[in-house]
C-alpha cells in the first residue's frame, strides 16, 4: 500500500507554470463576471467567489490539485509583500488619524484581538461539546486521514 501511494506520488507531475497561471486567470475572469450579479446590498467580491469556485473545481475533481498547487503555494508565500501597498495606502488616511486617530487605533487593536480570541474560544467550546455531549472524535492529525 505504501509502495503504491509512493508510485502515484512520483507519477503526478506539476503542470507547467504558465498553465497554472492560466487556470488562475480563468477562474478570476469567470468570478469577475459573477461578482456584479450580486445586489449592492449583499456585495460578494471577485476573489471570494474565485476562492469558492476553485475550491469547488478541486472538490469535484474537475481540475487536479497538481495543476494549481505550485502557483498557489508561491502566491500565498508572497502575501505579506503583496499587502505592503495596502499598508502604505494609510498615507491617504493620515488626515483621519489626526482628527481622532488614537481612539480609532486603540479600538482597532482591541477589536483585532477580540475577533481572534473570541472566535478561537467559541470554536474550542463547540469542539468540547462534540467531545463531551456527543462523544465524538475530535482528533485532528497534521497528515490527511485516508479512509
Amino acid at each position: 500500500m505504501a509502495d503504491k501511494s509512493n508510485t502515484t506520488q512520483a507519477e503526478t507531475k506539476d503542470a507547467p507554470i504558465l498553465i497554472q497561471m492560466g487556470i488562475f486567470a480563468g477562474v478570476l475572469f469567470v468570478s469577475s463576471l459573477i461578482s456584479p450579479m450580486f445586489p449592492p446590498t449583499f456585495p460578494v467580491p471577485t476573489p471570494v467567489i474565485g476562492l469558492v469556485l476553485l475550491y469547488l473545481l478541486l472538490t469535484f475533481h474537475i481540475i487536479k490539485v497538481e495543476w494549481v498547487d505550485k502557483f498557489a503555494t508561491f502566491m500565498i508565500g508572497m502575501i505579506a509583500f503583496l499587502f505592503v501597498p495596502s499598508g502604505i495606502q494609510l498615507t491617504a488616511s493620515l488626515d483621519i488619524m489626526k482628527a481622532q486617530g488614537v481612539q480609532l487605533i486603540v479600538a482597532i487593536i482591541i477589536s483585532t484581538v477580540v475577533l481572534l480570541v473570541v472566535i478561537a474560544y467559541t470554536t474550542s467550546f463547540f469542539i468540547w461539546i462534540r467531545k463531551t455531549v456527543f462523544h465524538g472524535d475530535i482528533s485532528v492529525s497534521e497528515t490527511v486521514d485516508k479512509k
Binding site: 476573489p47 476562492l51 502557483f71 498557489a72
Partner: peptide, 30 residues
Amino acid sequence: YTNAYKPGGDIIFWFLNPATIAFAVPLYKR
C-alpha cells in the same frame, strides 16, 4: 501618494486577487 505611489502600488495590490484564490488549495487539501 495618489500621483507618485499609487500607480505602482495598484499593480502589486491587484495580485492579492490571485493570492486570495490560491487559498482554495490548502483548503481542498484538508
